[in-house]
């Protein structure tokens, strides 16, 4: 009787041990090294994405001396995504299909992001150039308009509203900028034989040509002002 109890206890314990061992083996990750590589790739992807965002913000603030780092980071992101794609294809079982879908979704998102970065780079270059010109115009036009108080007043009003628009590029302020530019371009000093058409995408911005002689810089100031009015909201929309 005692021996049968012992054998019964031993068989129960052995069965439990076998069950635990089976569950332990089944619960093991099939490829820990692969999982670690994929996690590392995801983390690297995140870091590069953060870097790209930082570079874009620096460019928007005018603090990036050149744009080489943007496509370079994009290439790093593409390489990392390629690593992720290759690793996900080696996973066993049915996981590659599901993982492949997620990786392709990530690739599509990356492509879209790099397209937006491409557009941002183009628009931001124009914007930064025009903002630089405003600074130049402020230094050179001041002495020239000392004898024309009306023009000086228009330029001062334009500067104020442009500064407000640069800080807060809202449509209402944009309309004020447009009105200020129109007032400046309709002053008696505008060139009679000068008509400039600026084409930006589908918008055509024209400067009326009606009146006599006007210094070239005033015309360029109006052109750059209209460009800022058009491009600045686009750039901020791309950033958001």
């Amino acid at each position: 009787m005692g021996m049968s109890n012992v054998w019964k206890s031993l068989s129960v314990v052995s069965g439990l041990l076998l069950l635990l061992t089976y569950l332990l083996i089944q619960s093991r990750s099939p490829d820990l090294a692969l999982r670690a590589r994929m996690q590392e790739a995801l983390q690297t992807l995140q870091l590069h994405d953060t870097e790209l965002t930082r570079e874009v913000l620096l460019a928007r603030a005018g603090l990036l001396p050149h744009y080489d780092s943007l496509p370079r980071t994009g290439q790093s992101l593409s390489r990392t995504l390629g690593t992720l794609r290759a690793e996900s294809a080696t996973v066993s079982g049915q996981a590659p299909q599901e993982m492949g879908q997620h990786v392709e979704a990530l690739a599509a998102a990356l492509h879209q992001k790099m397209t937006l970065v491409e557009y941002f780079t183009s628009d931001n270059a124009l914007l930064q150039n025009s903002l630089t010109y405003l600074t130049y115009a402020g230094q050179t036009l001041g002495p020239r308009v000392e004898e024309e108080p009306a023009v000086a007043a228009h330029i001062a009003a334009l500067s104020q509203v442009l500064l407000r628009f640069i800080h807060t590029p809202e449509p209402s302020v944009g309309q004020e900028v447009g009105a200020a530019l129109d007032r400046l371009s309709q002053t008696p000093l505008f060139p009679q034989d000068f008509h400039t058409v600026i084409k930006l995408q589908s918008t055509e911005i024209g400067i009326p040509s009606q009146t006599p002689l006007f210094p070239q810089d005033f015309h360029t100031l109006v052109a750059h002002g209209r460009l800022i009015m058009e491009v600045l909201p686009q750039v901020d929309t791309l950033l958001r």
Binding site: E118, I198, L200
Partner: peptide, 27 residues
């Protein structure tokens, strides 16, 4: 630099790293 050529022609290859429309202020 002051005229803004370097807004687009910049970087290690003085260009080649961005796209731009040809004809901004005039056709």
């Amino acid at each position: 630099k002051s005229y803004g050529c370097v807004a687009c022609h910049q970087g290690i290859n003085i260009g080649g790293n961005m796209y731009q429309k040809f004809g901004i202020f005039a056709a």
